[in-house]
């Protein structure tokens, strides 16, 4: 087929389209996130010691350590759905946010050191359970990002998939932070980081084909 003929064909079957708006995508994700958080609190419940936890810096550090990378990675993902935008600066920003969070966690840990041994603080059994929860809670956001990605036009599919995986994984951890009673910086640094990394890597590989067009 000649390109002239192709132009004729494409023009002949033209249908009106709704222009993609970043704000609409962001609102949709916010709604999905709010419903997920609400369902978690209703069905599973918040951590039993929430009233005490919010008076201590560890809880807020944990929330910020998950929330800030989530916000940065989500923004980078949504922006990269536009073919003129790259997700790479946002990915670098998310990595810096994680590094800063780890440094602050180390500082908190150093100033509030407990007498418990490292093995005792790790709590392997609980850690594995937390990772499974985080992975499960990341799924709705990753699925929603995948659906939006399918309709968009990312020109760096691998980068966009990585940003979406990071955003979904960090969001799952953020939601789980309301139910998880563990605020020990060492526990959070090990298990949350491991859980998020595994989910982010898996999501990156699952979403990369979706991002191609």
């Amino acid at each position: 087929m000649t390109s002239e003929r192709l132009v004729e064909m494409l023009s002949a079957r033209l249908t009106p389209v709704r222009v993609r708006r970043l704000s609409h995508d962001a609102l949709l994700l916010a709604a999905i996130g709010a419903v997920e958080l609400l369902l978690l609190l209703l069905l599973v419940g918040a951590r039993p010691d929430l009233a005490t936890a919010i008076t201590r810096p560890f809880f807020w550090w944990k929330l910020a350590a998950m929330g800030v990378p989530t916000a940065i990675a989500l923004t980078a993902t949504l922006r990269s759905f536009d073919p003129t935008r790259s997700p790479r600066p946002g990915l670098r920003g998310a990595a810096i946010a994680v590094a800063v969070a780890l440094a602050l966690g180390w500082l908190l840990d150093a100033t509030h050191r407990s007498g418990t041994t490292i093995a005792g603080r790790m709590q392997w059994h609980e850690g594995m359970r937390c990772m499974a929860w985080m992975a499960m809670l990341a799924l709705p956001m990753i699925a929603a990002l995948g659906a939006l990605m399918r309709r968009s036009a990312p020109t760096d599919p691998a980068g966009t998939a990585r940003a979406a995986g990071t955003a979904g994984a960090a969001w799952g951890a953020f939601v789980f932070a309301f139910a998880c009673p563990h605020d020990d910086p060492l526990y959070v640094a090990i298990w949350y980081l491991a859980g998020c990394s595994l989910v982010a890597v898996a999501a990156r590989w699952l979403l990369a084909p979706v991002a191609r067009w």
Partner: peptide, 11 residues
């Protein structure tokens, strides 16, 4: 041209 057609809503 096909890509422009399929992704025209992203402009």
């Amino acid at each position: 041209l096909i890509a422009i057609h399929e992704k025209r809503h992203t402009y």
